[in-house]
Design a protein around this nucleic acid. Structure first.
Length: 765
DNA sequence: GAGCACTGC
C-alpha cells in the first residue's frame, strides 16, 4: 500500500524549561528527544439534542468529523487489503479513528451480508460500550440493533446486529459455544499491543478457526474430502467439524482477521500471523516534548514534588498528571503537595490536588473530570489507571517517575506479589502521550535518557506472569489436549503450564490421560470463575450448601468489600464487628452479603410503599432507595461498587448452576457442614499451625502467617483453609476459615495421605 | 498488627 504517512512525531527542536535557564529547581532536565505517542480507542462524545433541526446539524457535524479523521482518506485501500489478505495487521496511532471507522468501512464493503457479523474485541468494558455507542450514532442507528455490544452482565445486541463490539473475554466465551465462530465473517482484535491474557489466547484460537474454516470452505467447493487429518492439537475440533452440524459447516466461508495495534512493534505480529501484511495509519496527536533529568534522582518522590512546583510556577496554563505507584504513595504525596501549596504567595495561581486510583469510591473518582476553577491549576495524582483506562481532559504536563506496581507470580510456589518495577519504553511513551491529547504538551521523565534506552521495549505479556489454571481449563474445553504445543505468540514457561495442569488434575477437572473430565471438568469450564471456585460450586451442590458457597465465591471474586481509610481505621474496624463470624472470613463475607441484600430489599419495599401513579414519583422513590443503600454502605465502611458486583456475579453463577440442572440449597444454620464443604473445596490451600506458632502451607511446605485483616488474626486456629497467598514483607494468607485437620484426609483422600495431614500424599517436589 | 497496580469471564 502506498501507505499512509508515518505517524505524527513530537517536536525535535523544542527548548526545554529545564535546559538550565532560570528555574527555581533549574538544571534538572536535559533537552528533549522529541518522542510522543500512545493512545487509546476513540472517546465518548456528548449526545446531541433530539430536535429535528439540531439532528440535521448533528449528522452534518458527524460527517465532517469522520471525513477529517486520518483514516478516511485511505478507506478504499484498507478495504482492498482486507479483501486480499486472510489476516491484516493495522498499526494505527492515537487519534487515527481506526476503532470507530474501520468496522464501518467493512460494513459498507459488504462484510456483514447474509446475516454475518463483524466482531471487534476490546480489552475493557467501557471501551466496548462507548465505541459501539459512537458508531451507532455515526451510522444513525440505535445501539443494540445494527451496531451492538456484548460485555459480561450486559448483552446489547439483537438478531439484526452486524457490527458487534465486545470484550475479548466475551468472544472467548462465545467460542466455547460455537467453536467455528460461524456467525462472524471477520474478527477485529483491537488494542492487540496490550496483550491481555484473553487477547493472547484468542490469537492462537483464531488462527486455528481460520485453518478449519478454510478447510471447510474448500472442502465444500471441491466436494468430497474425508475428515481432516488428525494428529494435530486441534483434532477434536476437526472431528467435531467433520461429524456434527454438517450442512451448516459446509457452507461456511473463511474467517478474516484484522489485528489492530497502537505500537510500531509490528514484526512480532506479522511473523506470528504467518507473514501477514501490515499497514500504517497516521494518527492525530499533538507533539509532546520529552525531558530527562541529567543525573539519576535519589528520591523520585522529592523530585516529583519539585517538578510539580517548577511546572506550576514557570509553565503556561494546563493541568499536570503525575504517575505514582499506589494508593499509599498518592495519599502521602497529596499531603505534601497541599502543605507546600499553602505556602505559595498570594499572587501565584492556586494548585488543586486530585487523587485517582481504582479503589477510590466512584464519587471521588469523578473529581478528576471536573475542570479546575478559574485561576487554578489541577494536579492529578494517578496510578496506572490514567495510562489507558481513563482519559482525563485538560492535561498538558505529564510527570513520569518511570515506575509501576505490577503483579508478579511464582509458578513454583503459586505465590503472587505486587512489586514496584521500572516501566517499559512503550509504557513511558503511552504516559507521555497523555500530555498531547488537546494541545502540544510536555513530559518530564524523572530519570536519565541513558536509563530510558535501557528500559525493556514492551511489558511482559500477561500470559507470562500469571496463574494459568483458568487458561488451561479453557483450552482443554476447546478440545486442545496438547496445551504445551499450543500456538502461543509468546509461550508461557513450561513449569507454569505443567503446574497449572497439576492443579486442574488435583481438582478432578482432568482425567489420568490429561483430558477434560466429564461431567466435572466440562462443568467447571463453563463457569466464569477461577477453577477452584468452580469446583467449590459443584461440591457444594452435593453437600447441601450451594447457597452459602454461591455467596462465598461471589464475594471472593471481587475486590475487598471493606473500605478502611487510614484516618478512620478504628471506626471501620468497629463497624465490621457486626458481621464477624468466629469461624472465619468466608462466613463473615456471607453475613455482609446477606445484610446488604436485606437492606436493599427493605429500601426497595420502603420505596414501593409510597408508589404513586406518575413515573416521576417512582423515579424519586428509586433515588431514595439508592441513597439509603449508599448510606448503609458508607456507615458500615463497605465498598458499594464491590458489593454490587458481587450481587451481579451471584446472579450470573446461580443461572449457570441451575442451567446445569443442579440445585441451589442452603444448609441453614448448620455452619459445620459448610466449613466441611470449604475444606473439601479448598484442600489445596490448607495450612497448619506449627509448634512454634507459625503456619505451614501444606501443599508447598512454605511458612505463612495469617494476615492481620483476617477475623482469625490472633485467634491461633490449629488448621485453616485459605483463598489467597500474598507476599509482601512476608507471606500472608488471607480469606481464611477454621477447619478440623482430620477433615482433609477424609474429604480429599486423593491428595492427603490417609494417616494424617502432615504432608500431602503426592506432589512433594 | 499490615497495607492492596490494572483489567476480564
Amino acid at each position: 500500500m502506498p501507505s499512509m504517512a508515518p505517524l505524527s512525531g513530537g517536536s525535535k527542536d523544542g527548548t526545554g524549561p529545564g535546559g538550565g535557564a532560570g528555574l527555581p529547581f533549574g538544571g534538572r532536565f536535559g533537552p528533549p528527544d522529541g518522542g510522543s505517542s500512545g493512545g487509546d480507542a476513540a472517546g465518548k462524545r456528548k449526545a446531541a439534542s433530539a430536535l429535528p433541526e439540531a439532528r440535521g446539524n448533528k449528522r452534518q457535524a458527524i460527517l465532517d468529523q469522520r471525513r477529517a479523521l486520518p483514516i478516511s482518506s485511505v478507506e478504499g485501500e484498507l478495504v482492498n487489503l482486507v479483501k486480499k489478505n486472510d489476516t491484516l495487521v493495522v498499526i494505527g496511532e492515537t487519534g487515527s479513528g481506526k476503532t470507530t471507522q474501520l468496522p464501518q468501512f467493512l460494513h459498507a464493503a459488504g462484510f456483514c451480508k447474509g446475516g454475518m457479523m463483524v466482531g471487534i474485541t476490546q480489552p475493557r468494558r467501557v471501551a466496548a460500550i462507548t465505541v459501539a455507542t459512537r458508531v451507532a450514532e455515526e451510522m444513525g442507528v440505535e445501539v443494540g440493533k445494527e451496531v451492538g455490544y456484548s460485555i459480561r452482565f450486559e448483552d446489547c445486541t439483537s438478531a439484526s446486529t452486524q457490527l458487534k463490539y465486545m470484550t475479548d473475554g466475551m468472544l472467548l466465551r462465545e467460542a466455547l459455544l460455537d467453536p467455528l465462530l460461524s456467525r462472524y465473517s471477520l474478527i477485529v482484535i483491537d488494542e492487540a499491543h496490550e496483550r491481555t491474557i484473553h487477547t493472547d489466547v484468542l490469537f492462537g484460537l483464531l488462527k486455528g478457526v481460520q485453518k478449519r474454516r478454510q478447510a471447510a470452505s474448500t472442502a465444500s467447493t471441491s466436494s468430497k474430502q474425508k475428515a481432516p487429518k488428525t494428529g494435530d492439537s486441534l483434532k477434536d475440533l476437526q472431528s467435531l467439524l467433520a461429524t456434527s452440524n454438517t450442512p451448516a459447516v459446509k457452507k461456511i466461508s473463511p474467517l478474516k482477521l484484522v489485528v489492530m495495534s497502537a505500537t510500531l512493534d509490528t514484526k512480532g505480529f506479522c511473523e506470528y500471523f504467518n507473514g501477514a501484511e501490515a499497514v500504517y495509519v497516521q494518527g492525530r496527536q499533538f507533539p509532546v516534548e520529552i525531558f530527562y533529568t541529567f543525573t539519576p534522582e535519589a528520591d523520585y518522590l522529592d523530585a516529583a514534588l519539585l517538578t510539580t512546583f517548577q511546572i506550576h510556577l514557570e509553565e503556561t496554563p494546563g493541568d499536570i498528571l503525575l504517575f505514582l505507584t499506589g494508593q499509599e504513595e498518592i495519599e502521602s504525596m497529596e499531603r505534601l503537595l497541599k502543605e507546600r501549596a499553602s505556602h505559595l504567595s498570594q499572587n501565584v495561581q492556586k494548585l488543586l490536588v486530585v487523587p485517582i486510583y481504582a479503589a477510590l469510591p466512584s464519587e471521588q473518582q469523578m473529581r478528576v473530570f471536573q475542570a479546575a476553577p478559574e485561576g487554578t491549576r489541577k494536579v492529578i495524582l494517578a496510578t496506572n489507571i490514567a495510562e489507558t483506562s481513563l482519559t482525563i481532559p485538560g492535561i498538558r504536563y505529564v510527570i513520569d517517575p518511570g515506575l509501576v506496581k505490577a503483579r508478579a507470580f511464582n509458578p513454583r510456589t503459586g505465590v503472587e506479589s505486587l512489586e514496584v518495577v521500572p516501566v517499559s519504553k512503550a509504557q513511558a511513551q503511552q504516559r507521555s502521550g497523555r500530555a498531547g491529547r488537546e494541545k502540544p504538551g510536555k513530559c518530564f521523565r524523572l530519570y536519565t535518557e541513558d536509563l530510558f534506552t535501557k528500559l525493556v521495549a514492551t511489558t511482559v505479556p500477561e500470559i507470562q506472569r500469571c496463574n494459568l489454571a483458568n487458561v488451561m481449563l479453557q483450552l482443554k474445553a476447546f478440545g486442545i489436549d496438547d496445551v504445551l504445543g499450543f500456538d502461543f505468540m509468546d509461550k508461557p514457561s513450561r513449569i507454569s503450564i505443567v503446574k497449572s495442569l497439576e492443579h486442574l488434575y488435583s481438582l478432578g477437572a482432568l482425567t489420568d490421560e490429561g483430558k477434560l473430565s466429564d461431567p466435572i471438568g466440562v462443568r467447571m469450564s463453563r463457569f466464569p470463575l477461577e477453577p477452584m471456585y468452580a469446583k467449590a460450586m459443584l461440591i457444594s451442590c452435593d453437600m447441601g450448601c450451594s447457597e452459602e458457597m454461591l455467596a462465598t465465591v461471589s464475594m471472593m471474586s471481587v475486590d475487598s468489600v471493606f473500605y478502611a481509610p487510614r484516618d478512620k481505621l478504628q471506626e471501620a474496624n468497629n463497624a465490621r464487628k457486626r458481621f464477624i463470624s468466629v469461624d472465619g472470613d468466608h462466613i463473615t463475607f456471607i453475613n455482609v452479603l446477606r445484610h446488604y441484600i436485606q437492606e436493599a430489599e427493605e429500601a426497595g419495599a420502603e420505596a414501593g410503599e409510597g408508589e404513586g401513579t406518575s413515573s416521576n414519583s417512582s423515579a424519586n422513590e428509586n433515588k431514595k432507595a439508592f441513597k439509603r443503600i449508599r448510606s448503609w454502605c458508607s456507615a458500615n465502611f463497605i465498598n458499594a461498587r464491590s458489593l454490587r458486583r458481587a450481587v451481579d456475579i451471584q446472579k450470573q453463577i446461580r443461572g449457570y448452576v441451575e442451567g446445569m440442572g443442579l440445585k441451589i440449597t442452603s444448609c441453614g444454620e448448620d455452619m459445620l457442614s459448610f466449613r466441611r464443604c470449604l475444606a473439601a473445596s479448598f484442600f489445596l490451600n490448607a495450612a497448619r499451625r506449627q509448634l512454634d506458632g507459625t503456619y505451614r502451607a501444606l501443599s508447598s511446605g512454605q511458612s505463612v502467617a495469617i494476615h492481620p485483616s483476617s477475623v482469625l488474626f490472633g485467634k491461633k486456629p490449629d488448621c485453616v483453609v485459605f483463598n489467597e497467598l500474598v507476599r509482601t514483607n512476608r507471606s500472608y494468607i488471607r480469606n481464611i476459615t477454621q477447619v478440623d485437620s482430620l477433615w482433609l484426609p477424609e474429604l480429599a483422600p486423593h491428595y492427603y495421605a490417609a494417616q494424617g495431614v502432615g504432608t500431602p500424599s503426592q506432589q512433594q517436589s
